[in-house]
Amino acid sequence: MLFKNVKVLIILNLQYLQMESKLRAKESSNTTIMEFVLLGFTDIPHLQMFLLGIFFFAYVIILMGNGIIILITRVDKALQTPMYFFLVNFSFLEICYVSITIPKMLVNLWTQQRNISLSECATQMCFFLILGSTECLLLAVMAYDRYVAICNPLHYPLVMNRRVCTQLVTGSWITAIPVQIGQTYQIFSLPFCGSNQINHFFCDIPPLFKLACGDTFVNEMSVYIVVVLFLTVPFLLIIGSYGKIMSTILRLPSATSRAKAFSTCSSHLTVVALFFGSGIITYFQPKSKHSSGRDRVLSLFYTIVTPMFNPIIYTLRNKDVMATLRKLLP
């Protein structure tokens, strides 16, 4: 009987020691991850310098193109209307948005040192999410501006006055700040163990979820809720606005008026399709369905392609902007 009791105690002690060692190993693995490694495009090592050149060229185009839009709308008083007021804010937002991710990516491609600290990763993600949400809201505001201008042209100066425009822009900039700070805190409160390699070129939510230990269901649900609020709802509002706009345009008696209205709206719709399309596909997929290669390609659309084509779309398809640009050029 005594032998059996001793045997039971030994087994219980061994089980306790095993559990304690596992907990210590888990704690040590969580605390040792103080930095991540952004793998980026390491799977294509022979194209590193080529990609560096492409992304550097894209970054210069984004800075110059959006900077020119800001400059010409400030110089020409004829362009100081609500539509161009929103466009200036959108261009400034694009400059800030790309500066969160591209410079770090260029440094990684140049030095091949891809480490990023935990705090730097959290900061990058937080600003990226805030500015991305701001872009969604601002695109919805721009759609509302076009809706009022085309569907209620007589009331347009009254509805879209200076105070209302300022309030809409301010609301777009500050609404997402507390939500995305909270979401970033929640994500980085997760325990990260095992690999510290992020299979992406910046700190984004889907690749970080893959490194998290334990159950991330609650975190994924909170991400989906935020995506619905800041991505899906603005997108549906934009679609609804343009449904009304198209209906109004088709009833215009003059073919010239219809062509001008379509030209103005098509520029904005092109940007919306590129940005929202890639964003919705990326963030609405469950964790198990994410593919690292596909996620990287999709994220290039909303981090580089859309900001690069924004100034091209809004200048080449806008006669007023092109006329002002010709005046400035010698």
Rank of each mutant, 00 (worst) to 15 (best):
T306R: 14
A58G: 07
V169R: 13
C96G: 09
T282F: 12
M246A: 12
K77P: 04
V305T: 07
L138G: 02
L298Q: 01
G67I: 12
I10A: 12
S278K: 10
I150T: 10
M125V: 04
P45N: 05
I245P: 11
F202S: 08
L138F: 01
T324Q: 10
K260S: 04
N30G: 13
M105D: 04
H155N: 10
P178K: 04
A212F: 03
Y59S: 08
A143E: 06
P311I: 04
Y16T: 06
I44W: 07
I181G: 04
T324M: 08
T134W: 07
M19V: 10
Y147A: 03
A143T: 01
W173L: 13
F41M: 06
H290M: 13
N108T: 05
L190P: 00
F50K: 05
V37R: 04
M142H: 01
T42A: 12
E27F: 09
I312G: 09
I312D: 08
L252A: 11
I249M: 04
S28P: 00
T232R: 01
T303A: 07
I102V: 15
M1Q: 14
L300W: 03
F192M: 11
E94G: 02
F56V: 01
R146H: 05
F192L: 11
P234A: 03
L329S: 09
Y314M: 11
D320G: 05
A176N: 00
S189E: 06
F192V: 07
L118W: 12
M19H: 14
V6S: 07
T315L: 12
I33A: 05
F56N: 01
T101N: 13
A78I: 05
H268E: 12
M221R: 14
H155F: 05
T123P: 00
T31S: 10
I177P: 06
L109C: 06
N318E: 02
Y302P: 02
I304L: 09
L237Y: 03
A259G: 04
C265V: 01
R114M: 08
Q112A: 08
K260F: 05
P307R: 09
S257I: 02
T31H: 10
T101Y: 15
V107I: 15
C193A: 04
G243W: 08
F41Q: 07
S222N: 10
I198P: 11
Q167H: 06
F275R: 12
V223M: 08
M142G: 07
F128K: 09
R296M: 15
F262P: 00
I10F: 09
E120I: 00
F230S: 13
K287C: 05
F202C: 06
V226P: 00
L237A: 08
Q180T: 00
N108F: 02
V227Q: 14
V227P: 01
T134G: 02
F3V: 09
I281N: 10
F41H: 13
I68W: 00
K4S: 07
T264P: 00
L87G: 03
L14H: 07
K22A: 09
I181P: 08
A78Y: 15
L51Y: 10
F127Y: 15
T73M: 13
